[in-house]
Design a protein around this nucleic acid. Sequence first.
DNA 1: TGAAATGTTGGGGCG
DNA 2: ACGCCCCAACATTTC
Length: 451
Amino acid sequence: MSRGLVWFRADLRLGDNPAWAAATSDHEEVVALFVVDPVLWEGSGSHRRDQLAAHLGALDRSLQRRGGRLRVRRGDPARVIPAEAEGAARVYWNGDATPYSLRRDAAVLNALGFRGEEHPGRYVHPPGSVLTGEGAPFRVFTPFFRAWQSRPWDPWPEPGTAAVAADPGEGVPAGGRPLVEPGEEAAAQRLEDFLERVDGYSEERDRPDRAGTSRLSADLKFGTIGPRTVALRVDGPGEGRRAFIRQLAWREFYAHLLAAFPETRRRAMRPEYEGVAWRRDDDAFAAWAEGRTGYPFVDAAMRQLRAEGWVHNRPRMVAASFLVKDLLIDWRRGERHFLRWLVDGDVAQNVGNWQWVAGTGADAAPYFRVFNPVTQGLRFDPDGAYVRRWVPELAGLPAPAIHAPWEAPPAVLDAAGVVLGTTYPPPLVDHAEARAAALEAYEAAKRPRPA
DNA sequence: TGAAATGTTGGGGCG
DNA sequence: ACGCCCCAACATTTC
């Protein structure tokens, strides 16, 4: 009897899954394997581990409905996969593009004696497939987007009928309470829920106090939903749908960039900014990470990150900008922190967006675009509801004052029970001064070095 | 997917 | 009626 092995990684679904479809069509029996890689497991914060464990449980239940189990092993994939592949004709997986996964997959493939088969399941168009007319990678989003959109594709095949092996191995790791209901059915329901409000997406997506976004980032990260399913369901007329497809394309752009320029995992895409004189300020970093910068919109974002591992994109950008521009701390420190704590933490997206904010990336925000944390709060959280939820000690403050409590009249602070320096910190830095210092630091880095 | 600084315009108050 | 000032609203430029 012919047997195949499917190595699940960031594609925890059975539908819209090319590796699964190929294996279940090519063989009479398949083993569904997940390897808990200590490098990734230990590197993840509790939020992502809890969500992953829950998703694995849901995948196991889906496989049980097919008469099998998810097999779980702990260890280095380069050792575990060949051992598990004893008796299997081929091993199937969906490829990824981060430097670590490329190294890992090459090692696995080598150890398997090339009985491995990589499929593209993580993106609508796999990294490296969208290129300029000259065959070079795009460095600017808009032309990438055009090429990405005009590239034809078909939905991936449906799964075949192979039996699923029923040995659960070590079993699904235990985890705490996940952020969202696990599994691909729940993810599909989240997509359907989003489609109910997609027409308002353009208007609502920047409002952290409302539920205007798709909330699909973690599902795309874990692969509990397929990118082509998302693209197919969202495609259509209307501003909201177009705006969302554009966001989906940013995700693909960043995957393409990291695949084409793997060194940008650690280094600025624009080398002139490698020389910025970042400050080594552990106290300021801790204040940022713990949500006590004294800027309510920033603190709300950082507390939401700690509490639930997900942050709305707008406060995410503003909090990131604050670390880099206001505190002048190296974007890589923030990148590491976000990657650890985010449920949707993904190397390509995280690095791409941090470099965008820092102004060091391809097609990034110019370095002189500095977010004002007060103005951003006033504009995108006009009632203060988002701040009120995550910074409860300010909850008694009325709308405009809540975004800049140090400017509120004493009577207003009194009435809200806010004592600056006691119940809530004063601003860690003066934004206007910090902005000027950041501009100076970036310009200094750009200037040619004196001979 | 900014914001501050600077420039311009036009309405209204007022002598 | 006129000039002057103030300032809000908008536009442009600069970082």
